[in-house]
């Protein structure tokens, strides 16, 4: 009986609440997708993909808590460390479109 199984009320546990929160973060990611696709400039897209990556880290962490699977944090860590690589790669690429790397 962990914290996740504690009842919040009306049959919902803390884990269910965390799953709803995770779904909300996914909805926010869908909203951010608009900027990644439409984004008039490449800087918008770089920022959008960075936000999406951070968002995914949060979603994975919440999923790990909600489903009582601490190993999910390992995947969140991979994204936290490699999302940065994606950001610097795209941002350096946007300067003269790969003319400068």
């Amino acid at each position: 009986m962990s914290v996740v199984d504690a009842t919040l009320g009306a049959g919902y546990t803390v884990g269910d609440f965390l799953l709803i929160v995770a779904a909300g973060f996914v909805v926010l990611a869908i909203g951010m997708l608009y900027r990644a696709v439409k984004g008039p400039t490449m800087q918008d897209r770089v920022l959008a993909v960075n936000v999406l990556g951070t968002n995914t880290v949060v979603i994975l962490a919440i999923l790990g808590a909600a489903l009582s699977e601490p190993t999910f944090l390992d995947i969140a860590l991979v994204y936290a460390l490699l999302n940065f690589l994606m950001a610097i790669a795209i941002s350096k690429f946007t300067v003269e479109r790969g003319g400068v790397l």
Partner: peptide, 11 residues
Amino acid sequence: IMAAVVFMIAF
């Protein structure tokens, strides 16, 4: 992941 670190350093 280790190869990605090398990419990071290269960038």
